[in-house]
Design a protein around this nucleic acid. Structure first.
Lengths: 144, 144
DNA sequence: CTCAGTGCAAACCTTTTGCAATAGT
DNA sequence: ACTATTGCAAAAGGTTTGCACTGAG
């Protein structure tokens, strides 16, 4: 989603027979405001600022719908919780995760060879990939 | 671990005050026999062939010890379960995962630029990365 | 002989599901 | 109106923890 305005997303959802509710609007706005790779609980907390009655279960179901409709996508850091990013029409991005303070930074360039080449040796047709980088942010690097 | 013989691992564990037990031997052998990225339950089932009394909890604790000692490392496909690979001294590898049949293939070449360059724009010091490729294996690609 | 490791049962924590009530379109 | 969506409480599913017992070094 390039201009991920609420209207654009609403249209996208309606297309699939889905409805745009106050709850979904709140989750969408939280997602946009929080930025990269936030987990359901964080999104829930933030979205509650706009709609206090919002339940965590609704956040899970909303995120599920967003993922199915290509509005958002899951990100995994391997810490046992799923995080979510708003999808961008133009491309994808990866993340730098600070092992000391947990800070997350976007990496917009993807230095990987084209998909065709990646799976060729094993005869696989690659349709997606996930890449996460771990290390220390500028603030934590000196200490570590 | 290049020659990941039991003795080599045993020595590595002892070095840290750890002990080599029948259970750990069984888990280690299961890990080696099963190959790439297997989850605790699969490892448990396999290791039980060698040591039927083995409990799942012990598998988890053994894997935790192996990871701490650099004998194995976790792999995440984002399906809610942690998988494990025996570590190799020489380098690392990634995986190709078939979205249709679940088949997993090793990718030995890592086409990524050196760590220093990856985090430079954001000032991060990159110490590790995780890359998983998803798509369809030769058997499933035609149908998909 | 000592302390790391084991096994069982119970706890944990994130995510999912059932169901009656609610609200977009 | 019709049915997708919500919220609660409860269930699920992978992983972790407490504790008394066992066994490697």
């Amino acid at each position: 989603m390039k201009g991920n305005g609420v209207e654009r997303v609403a249209a996208r959802l309606r297309h699939r027979g889905r409805r745009m509710t106050v709850q979904r609007r709140a989750v969408l706005e939280a997602l946009a405001a929080l930025g990269c790779a936030r987990d359901a609980e964080t999104i829930h907390a933030r979205a509650r600022a706009a709609y206090p009655k919002l339940g965590l279960v609704t956040v899970y179901r909303t995120l599920e719908a967003f993922v199915a409709d290509g509005v958002a996508h899951p990100v995994f850091f391997g810490d046992g919780r799923v995080r979510y990013d708003l999808s961008e029409d133009g491309g994808h991005h990866h993340h730098l995760v600070c092992l000391s303070c947990g800070r997350i930074a976007r990496v917009d360039e993807c230095h990987l060879p084209p998909s065709r080449r990646l799976g060729r040796p094993q005869g696989f047709t690659v349709t997606a990939h996930r890449l996460e980088l771990f290390g220390y942010c500028p603030r934590c690097a000196p200490k570590a």
